[in-house]
Every structure is written in structure tokens, then in C-alpha cells.
Design a protein around this nucleic acid. Structure first.
Lengths: 138, 138
DNA sequence: CTGAATCCTTACTAAATCACTCAAGATGAT
DNA sequence: ATCATCTTGAGTGATTTAGTAAGGATTCAG
């Protein structure tokens, strides 16, 4: 039931950018503050850029900054698009459903579905702004 | 956030044994009913035996059966002991806590902790009997 | 206008994990 | 004894993870 370091690292990077909103931070800066290796971080920031959460400025004095307001960054969305579905099994996934041959009578699916729903609710109701303010949904 | 097939398979096996409580089922039987490959299932049943959930009878007409009442089989415990901690990150794990250098000020830990607590609550409040009866805690 | 700082792109890889298979041994019922 | 079964331990191919490495493209400062 682990989350990969990539997802963790992406959130760390977003948090650092959120803590310096408006400023442009170089990958090296972000690496220092997040303890994520530079060349790995490059890839992650590229992905976050493709997902629209972040924008970049090239050349000297370039770097990254948030593209949107932290309140508009949905943590569930970030995790899902970086790591894949939130559901613990394909049969319980909404975004990446995969049928299972046991499904008609499966006694486990309700359990997996409940876990998916609960995790998704927490993650999708949390925004970057919530994390920055140490505030949670509900 | 996936669960491995090993955990799923173990629960499938326990469910089949629970549906035939009192009887001894051979690995081949269980494999037929769970669609888990025989030789993989062997290993999983061995582990379940070591964990005390299941007992075996060797020799001809041998096989496996539940050791305890289904109401006493805690799903969270099975998952945790077969797959490792329920927490999404080591810093949020109670049974396998791992310190993190960012921890004192980490903005993510409260999120991971909340996910751990929620998942653990669902899994630990659910027993094999609940699954067999299509009933959930609460 | 040149060079340094930075992002961008692609390729590669070592290690771990997953999901098994296989072979041979031990045990018990008939 | 024989055969069905569990037991034990080793081995393996595929995939994923968590990076590294090398060079190219762009922008800014001087």
C-alpha cells in the first residue's frame, strides 16, 4: 500500500514552490530544499509542467514556479497522474477500471471499493493550499 | 497505492476456506476456486499457516482448513503481515515507522498519517466473517 | 556577442520487487 | 508399498523503481 517516492517528491516540490509563490526557483534550489536528486527532480518537474501545475522559464535566471493558485492544485489529481490509480485493485478503480473474472460474486471487491473511495475522498478534497496551511478538508 | 496480488490471493484463499468451514481442502481445490496458480498458492498458504490463520494436514486426503473462527481473522493483520505496513510512507507507519529527515517541519506527514489511519481503521475493523457475510464494520 | 546558467530531451542502468515455476523431499492414508 | 498430498528451497523472467549521464536548446548578464 505504499506510495512511490516520485509522488512524494512531486508534492515536496509543489510545496516548496507554494512556499515561494511568485518567485522563480531553479531546479538546484528546489533540490536543496526537498532533498530530491537534481536529475531525478528534473524529470518530475517536467511531468508537473505537462500536467499544468507548474511553469518554467529557461536560460540564465530561469527556473520553475507554480502555474496556478495553490488552492486549485488537487492532491488526488497529482498523485493519480503521477503514480496511477488511487484504487488498491483494478476492479475498484474508477479512472482505470479493469474487469476481474471473479467479479460477479467477489467478496473482496466491496472492501477494495470502500478503500478506494475513502482514500480518494481524502486526497481529492485536499489542495496544495490545505497542506501549506496545515489544514485538512473537514 | 496498489495492493499486490499476493495479498489478494491470500484473502481469496481464506474466503474459500471460510465458505467450507470444517472441511479440509487440497491446494488444488483451492487453486480451482480462487484461480491462483497452484505452486504460487502453496507458498501463500504456507505463510498463512505460519501466521496462524490456517492449519494443514499432510499426506493423502490432506489439505488446508481454517484454524480459527472467521470472526477472529482480522483482515488488516493479514494484509500487513503478508505485504508490509498499511501506511503509504514509512514516516506514517505505526508498526514499521521510519524516520525522515524532513519530518520536523514536513507538511506531508499529516496527510500520510490520515490516510494510514483511515485505511487501517477499515482493514482492522473488518474480519473474514464480515467479508463472508458481505457485511462491513459500521 | 559571447559565455554561463539554466531548462529540455533522450538514453541508459542497477537494484528491487513481483509473480510466479520447478525439483525434490517428507508425510500420511489406503 | 504406493500415491496423493503438503513442504522446502532454489531459480527466473518481467516489470517497476529510483535514479544517472550526456548532450542540446534557450535565455540573460556582461
Amino acid at each position: 500500500m505504499k506510495i512511490s517516492s516520485k509522488g512524494e517528491y512531486a508534492l515536496r516540490a509543489l510545496l516548496v514552490l507554494g512556499q515561494h509563490e511568485g518567485k522563480v526557483l531553479s531546479i538546484a534550489d528546489i533540490s536543496d530544499k526537498t532533498l530530491v536528486p537534481i536529475s531525478y527532480l528534473e524529470q518530475i518537474l517536467l511531468q508537473l509542467k505537462m500536467l499544468g501545475h507548474v511553469k518554467s522559464k529557461r536560460g540564465s535566471r530561469g527556473g520553475y514556479s507554480l502555474r496556478t493558485n495553490p488552492a486549485d492544485v488537487n492532491i488526488g489529481d497529482v498523485i493519480r497522474r503521477l503514480e496511477g490509480p488511487l484504487a488498491p485493485m483494478g476492479c475498484a478503480s474508477i479512472t482505470s477500471y479493469e474487469p476481474c473474472i471473479l467479479e460477479p460474486t467477489c467478496l473482496l471487491k466491496p472492501l477494495w471499493t470502500r478503500i478506494r473511495d475513502t482514500v480518494a475522498q481524502i486526497l481529492e478534497e485536499t489542495t496544495l493550499a490545505d497542506l501549506l496551511d496545515r489544514r485538512f478538508s473537514r
